[in-house]
Amino acid sequence: MEVLKSKKDAIEQSKFIQDHQQQIDTAKEVWGIVDENFRITQTLENAIQSKAQMFDELLLKKVPGLTQEELDYLRQTIAGEVNKGKEALKDDKVKQLQDQVVSQNQQIQELQSTNFSLTKKLNDIQSAVQTAAQ
Rank of each mutant, 00 (worst) to 15 (best):
L4Y: 03
K5N: 06
K7H: 07
K8R: 12
D9P: 01
Q13C: 09
S14D: 10
S14T: 11
K15H: 05
I17Y: 08
Q18K: 15
Q18V: 12
H20A: 12
Q21P: 02
I24S: 00
I24F: 01
I24Y: 04
D25I: 02
D25K: 10
T26P: 01
T26Y: 04
T26C: 08
K28N: 08
K28E: 10
V30F: 02
V30P: 03
V30A: 01
W31S: 00
W31G: 00
W31Q: 01
W31I: 01
I33K: 13
I33L: 13
V34S: 01
D35T: 07
D35G: 07
E36F: 09
N37F: 05
N37R: 14
R39V: 12
I40T: 10
T43Q: 06
L44Q: 06
N46A: 12
N46E: 14
Q53I: 12
F55D: 02
D56S: 15
D56I: 03
D56F: 07
D56P: 04
K61I: 07
K61H: 13
K62Q: 03
K62N: 05
V63R: 11
G65K: 04
G65F: 06
T67M: 05
T67I: 04
Q68H: 09
Q68I: 03
E69T: 05
E70I: 01
E70D: 04
E70F: 03
E70N: 01
E70Y: 01
E70H: 00
L71F: 01
D72K: 15
Y73W: 08
L74D: 00
L74W: 00
R75Q: 08
Q76L: 05
Q76S: 08
Q76M: 07
T77M: 08
T77R: 10
G80A: 06
E81G: 03
V82Q: 13
N83Y: 11
N83V: 10
N83L: 14
E87T: 05
A88S: 10
K90N: 12
D92Y: 10
D92M: 14
D92K: 15
K93L: 15
K93R: 09
V94L: 13
V94F: 10
K95Q: 11
Q100T: 06
Q100Y: 08
Q100K: 14
V102I: 14
S103W: 06
S103Q: 14
Q104P: 02
Q106F: 07
Q107D: 08
I108A: 03
E110T: 07
E110D: 12
E110A: 15
L111I: 06
L111M: 14
Q112K: 10
T114F: 03
T114W: 04
F116S: 13
S117K: 13
L122I: 15
N123R: 15
D124Y: 12
I125Y: 11
I125C: 07
I125F: 13
I125R: 10
Q126V: 00
Q126W: 00
S127D: 09
S127K: 13
A128Q: 14
Q130E: 15
Q130S: 14
Q130N: 10
T131Q: 12
A132G: 02
A132P: 05
Q134G: 14
